[in-house]
Each structure stands twice: as structure tokens, then as C-alpha cells.
């Protein structure tokens, strides 16, 4: 069923010059990544590992220093759409207008866009909340609107930048299960950035583990858990094995960087 690659990155580097010290910082070092069409791939790592930076480069919000990224062309519409951290809804727009934003930007009339986004509002479970303003929604509902906004432009790849990081633990779990349901219904390729191990394992076909300073890929782990997945899968031994293996990778790196810090 995976016919082609949706995204292919080769040797992507991102350099910053630190304002104060003037030193060059490598936010991303030589990142290679292939994402097959329809796959759910997570980028997992501590803060500063460049996982969000990578997403922003794919989306075009940042430009890499070197290397290239190829996105599989789509017949119409966009290759990729971003689901932002902290919902990032326009507070002066209703839910419907927020969800319709991408379409309006693409030149669809406001009226037509409002009609076209209704199925997506229903899909994410916000039916009946279309006329509410963001301040009237809970954090979880705001993230649903954020997701619907990205779904509405009908892009082939969804780029999700820690969308559940600011939610409380119960809501986060609920949203993870919801996301899998929606992913199943919408049949998208997803690149999901997170720093939560269990979130990455639960959602993904593959977890790409990253380390910081410089930001780089240290492991690429295929998650062989059956789908569709329920939240109860988190209590199975297989799930916990994955978690521990990834934790081992991340913790090892932590110690390594800590000892480097002492040595210098």
C-alpha cells in the first residue's frame, strides 16, 4: 500500500550563529529521513535537538543551510500543512473561520470555504462549535480546531509540531486516540514531533530518535504494534519494551552530553 515516498530528506543541515558568542551552532547535522506515503512517523528527542526546526524547514517557514528535501508532488492543493504547537488560532475568528483560514489563503471565497470545512469540523469532533471563538474552547478543543485547519487544505502530509504538549495528561491521551481515528479516516502521511516517548510509540509506525548539540538522528525504530490501536496498548509488555529501549537511547545520550560538559 506504500507506493512511494511522501517526503525524502538528504543531508539537511541547519546552522545558526549565536548572537552573543558569535559561535556557529548546528541545529541540525546531516539529517536523512524517508517517509513513505501514508506512514505515521514521529521525531522524538529532547528540546534543542532540532526536531521542530526540521518541521519548519519542510513547511518552508525556515530555510536550511544545506541539504535538500523532496516532497512528493500532488495533483492539486498543497503538499504539506502544519499543525502548530499551542493551537495558534486567531482569537478574533470563529472556529469555522479559523479552520477555513488555509482555504481562504489559497484563494477560496470565504463563503465557499466555510461550507467546505464543515466536514472537517465534524471529523475532529467540533460539530456545533463552529460559531464559538477560541477563548470559549478548552485546550483540547482548540487543538482539534488547529488539526481541522491543517486537514481542511487537504495536504498530503500533515506536519504536527508537539500539538498536545500543553494539554493535561488525560486530555492528551484522549487526543492521541482521536488523532489515530482521524488519521485512519483522512489517510494522510503524518510527521509528528514530540518529546514524549509513550506518545511517539503509541501513534507511530516509526519513531526517529534525535539527540541535541548538534541536532541529529541517532536511531530509527519501527514500531510493530498492531493497528488499529487502543489506549490499552500502552499497558502491554511490547509497548513498554519499546518505551524502555528508546528511553535507554535518550538517557545514554544525556549522560554522554553531561560528561562532555564536565570535560570541557
Amino acid at each position: 500500500m506504500e507506493h512511494h515516498l511522501a517526503l525524502s530528506a538528504r543531508g539537511v543541515q541547519m546552522e545558526y550563529r549565536d548572537r552573543q558568542s558569535g559561535k556557529r551552532l548546528l541545529a541540525l547535522e546531516n539529517v536523512d529521513l524517508d517517509v513513505p506515503d501514508g506512514a505515521f512517523v514521529s521525531l522524538l528527542g529532547p528540546s534543542g535537538c532540532g526536531k521542530s526546526t526540521f518541521l519548519k524547514i519542510v513547511n518552508g517557514l525556515l530555510r536550511q543551510t544545506s541539504g535538500e528535501i523532496k516532497l512528493h508532488r500532488v495533483a492539486k492543493g498543497r503538499e504539506d500543512a502544519m499543525v502548530f504547537q499551542d493551537a495558534s488560532l486567531f482569537p478574533w475568528y470563529t472556529v469555522t473561520d479559523n479552520v477555513a483560514y488555509g482555504l481562504v489563503c489559497a484563494g477560496v471565497s470565504r463563503k465557499a470555504a466555510r461550507e467546505r470545512v464543515q466536514p472537517f469540523i465534524d471529523l475532529v469532533g467540533l460539530g456545533g462549535f463552529g460559531d464559538k471563538y477560541p477563548y470559549q474552547l478548552s485546550g483540547g478543543m482548540q487543538q482539534r480546531a488547529n488539526l481541522a485547519r491543517a486537514l481542511a487544505v487537504d495536504a498530503a502530509i500533515l506536519l504536527m509540531d508537539e500539538p498536545f504538549a500543553s494539554l493535561d495528561a488525560q486530555t492528551r491521551e484522549l487526543m492521541q486516540a482521536e488523532l489515530l481515528r482521524i488519521w485512519n479516516a483522512a489517510r494522510k502521511t503524518v510527521v509528528f514531533v514530540t518529546h514524549q516517548i509513550d506518545e511517539a510509540v503509541f501513534l507511530s509506525d516509526r519513531v526517529v530518535v534525535m539527540a541535541a548539540r548538534p541536532g541529529r538522528v541517532i536511531a530509527d525504530i519501527t514500531i510493530d504494534l498492531p493497528r488499529p490501536r487502543e489506549l490499552s496498548v500502552k499497558r502491554t509488555p511490547l509497548f513498554q519494551d519499546y518505551g524502555e529501549r528508546i528511553w535507554g537511547l535518550l538517557a545514554g545520550r544525556q549522560e554522554e552530553t553531561a560528561s562532555q560538559g564536565r570535560a570541557s
Binding site: 519548519k56 513547511n59 518552508g60 517557514l61 500543512a81 502544519m82 502548530f84 504547537q85 499551542d86 495558534s88 486567531f90 483560514y101 488555509g102 481562504v104 489563503c105 489559497a106 487544505v153
Partner: peptide, 16 residues
């Protein structure tokens, strides 16, 4: 800044 990223991400025109 974050909302500006949203606008840029959806390729909003300068007028938009």
C-alpha cells in the same frame, strides 16, 4: 509571532 507563522505557513498574501 506564532500567528504570523500560521499565516506564512498557509502562504497568506501580504494583504491577507
Amino acid at each position: 509571532r506564532q500567528l504570523l507563522d500560521v499565516a506564512r505557513s498557509f502562504r497568506a498574501s501580504e494583504a491577507r
